[in-house]
Nucleic acid binder design. Structure first.
Lengths: 116, 116
DNA sequence: AATCTTGTGCTACTTTTACAGCACAATGCT
DNA sequence: AGCATTGTGCTGTAAAAGTAGCACAAGATT
């Protein structure tokens, strides 16, 4: 496990966003309750709620007040090619002992040069 | 241009870290002064200095007090394979209209599953 | 209908982070 | 030697983010 425990709303947002866009959390699947997520990551409820709000704004999840939160139907999973390239990058980096944070920084750097 | 202007010490850190590890900033090459970086990104000097400190702790840069800051000799650039995979991922994502932030979230997600 | 679940929305407090601005020490340059 | 450059370290202040705890509304469950 390389993953550090998320400790801010943005990090919790990114965690679920990644799980959804990578297909680890499928269409219609249920997320933990806000309270549960807050407990899981040892943050305040307001912090977890903020993350969920942001995911909902982006249409990744749907909340129905007493029925919990679920992955929004359709349009959630990223194209397979992207996921496969991400997997390939992860493998290459780990094999070369490049940290996740460094890998992300490199990705940001090359993104700039290819940008439209 | 997808790149947003960094607005915190961590983001400035990541910006230079990415430039160095991707080879955009070569061995021995000089970085802007702390004051200049602060101006460039409209942050306080202390914020820019903090980012430089963090890079120095990680051995990515070398500072000599009145001679400025330079990329540390050796061991800066990541293996070519990593850079190429990063480039491939960037292209795939942009082609599929997946944002940088989403791409990073996906990378984090798959990283967890491959981790040692 | 009564009750439990769940997301939301407060309030007041604490912690973290950034800010502005300056002074200092080390070093390069002339 | 004298001056400019540059990283560092301070002060006090302000803004942003998180915390704890609770109350409420919408809806599910029994």
């Amino acid at each position: 496990m390389t993953g550090t425990t998320p400790s801010s709303a943005d990090e919790i947002d990114a965690l679920f966003r990644g799980a959804i866009r990578s297909g680890q959390l499928g269409d219609g699947e249920r997320l933990p309750t806000v309270r549960q997520t807050a407990r899981d990551f040892s943050v305040a409820q307001a912090t977890a709620a903020k993350a969920y709000k942001s995911l909902e704004r982006d249409g990744l999840i749907v909340t129905r007040t007493a029925a919990g939160t679920r992955v929004a139907p359709g349009a959630s999973r990223a194209p397979q090619a992207v996921i496969e390239h991400a997997r390939a990058l992860a493998e290459a980096s780990e094999g070369a002992l490049v940290t996740l944070e460094d890998t992300i920084a490199i990705l940001r750097a090359v993104w700039r040069t290819e940008a439209t």
